[in-house]
Amino acid sequence: MMRTLIYPLICLLVSSCASINSVSLTPIPPTRNAPVRAQKSRVIFLGLNFDNDFVDGVVDELRRQCPNGKVTGLLTKDETINYFLFFVYKKQVTANGYCVPNAPMNSKPKTTRVSHLDSELLGQANGSSNEAI
């Protein structure tokens, strides 16, 4: 009887239970050729955890994977994975997104043409503000 029960019991104790704490998603770009992914985790025993610095590594890792672009369409998952009788658990943060390359530098910059009338009005505005001072 004991032998029959011991194996299911061990399976139950060793198996992990994953649960989500929070999920967030940023705008998804139209070009999705370059996926990026970063995952950081920490195993915590008996709830003894003195800082949450492991999360900071996620941003650095994403930046490393996309040095010349913008990371967007980021799905961030904060999850807890419970192990052995909930004495041991893992906090895990996963970020999936896309690297969108920056626009080339030789593209024409946008310029604003200021007309003669506009500059006169600007001058008048400046003059009036000076008078007020």
Binding site: S15, A18, S19, R32
Partner: peptide, 18 residues
């Protein structure tokens, strides 16, 4: 009873939306 081994359903929702 809380027995779940992964959280892949979140990724599924993300890919469905995309």
């Amino acid at each position: 009873l809380g027995f779940t081994t992964d959280t892949d359903y979140v990724d599924q929702a993300y890919s469905k939306l995309a």
